[in-house]
């Protein structure tokens, strides 16, 4: 099966290492993945609040481009790794299915730029594709450097499994934990898998956002996680880059690596850390490296 890949803005900027590691993992698993030509911003959550129709039209353009590019396929699978993009594209697809009048209006808008949208597109999250299409067995088979002894706190964030997505349990998601097990690491059982990281508030109104991020990291450390694994560029950014601010504000000493699940997968598949964009991390996951080298863990 062929897949189209919709990067969205984050994976080309702050979340560059997500793209690097994900594409490297796809390649290692021999998946056929092509980037959508001439894709545009998904509209994110902000535009929806300003003008819904225009926001849907913008997002629908990407769906139409996918149909144009893969016009011979019966069903077109578009992988959207960023949680926000995934949620917006999924919402757009579902909204157009349920709202025929709006669909007509948006089809007219697309027609102006010579595009058409039929509804053949399926929006997929990489976790969904890896677990349900490739399968944990295949992943486990491809592992060359199992992360034995590494304790991973899987953090899904809010938009990967909610509100429209159906590939995982919305209350107790497990796909990332399934992958964690497949690469030989150990999942930490913790209740904050889908708790809000603070989203845009961590950077803007930090008295609201920062405590939310802090609670997550504190609980992960308390449960002896070596690393927090994420599937969203904003979650990763919030949890990793503000650790100094958190420590200052809450008089604490948190120091825990926050990486993309694809980076951990890449390490287990024997891909070199630089290809996985690990050099871009602000807080390198020291414990993971130490365990992989056979050293002792250090808890701070």
């Amino acid at each position: 099966m062929r897949y189209l890949y919709y990067p969205g803005c984050s994976l080309k900027s702050t979340g560059k290492s997500y793209e690097e590691s994900l594409l490297a993992v796809f390649k290692a698993l021999k998946m056929d993945v092509v980037e959508i030509n001439d894709w545009n911003c998904c509209g994110a959550t902000a535009y929806m609040a300003v003008d819904e129709t225009k926001a849907f039209a913008i997002a629908a353009r990407n769906l139409a481009l996918a149909e144009e590019q893969f016009n011979k396929e019966e069903e077109i699978h578009v992988i959207a790794p960023c949680s926000a993009c995934y949620m917006v594209l999924l919402k757009t697809k579902m909204f157009l299915e349920q709202n025929l009048a709006e669909k007509g209006r948006i089809k007219n808008a697309l027609k102006e730029s010579g595009l058409n949208y039929e509804g053949k597109v399926k929006i997929r999250h990489p976790l969904d594709v890896l677990v349900n299409d490739i399968g944990v067995k295949e992943i486990a088979k491809a592992v060359t450097h199992p992360l034995k002894g590494v304790k991973v706190a899987s953090y899904y964030g809010c938009q990967t499994v909610r509100p429209y997505s159906t590939f995982d349990d919305q209350r107790e998601p497990h796909t990332m934990d399934d992958i964690t097990a497949a690469i030989g690491a150990e999942s930490v059982d913790w209740p904050l898998k889908t708790r809000c990281c603070g989203a845009s508030l961590t950077g803007t109104i930090d008295r609201v956002g920062l405590p939310l991020s802090f609670m997550i990291l504190k609980e992960a450390s308390k449960r002896r996680a070596d690393v927090v694994s994420t599937s969203c560029p904003l979650c990763q950014f919030n949890l990793e880059c503000y650790q100094d601010n958190m420590n200052k504000q809450f008089r604490n000493d948190i120091h825990i690596g926050v990486v993309y699940f694809s980076q951990l997968m890449g390490l287990a598949l024997g891909i070199d850390p630089k290809t996985l964009g690990m050099n871009r991390l602000f807080v390198p996951p020291e414990n993971v490296y130490k365990i992989m080298k056979g050293g002792e863990k250090v808890y701070v």
Binding site: R171, W190, P191, M215, E219
Partner: peptide
């Protein structure tokens, strides 16, 4: 919403 052992 949930029953948790997560102590705040």
């Amino acid at each position: 919403a949930e029953v948790t052992d997560w102590a705040l």
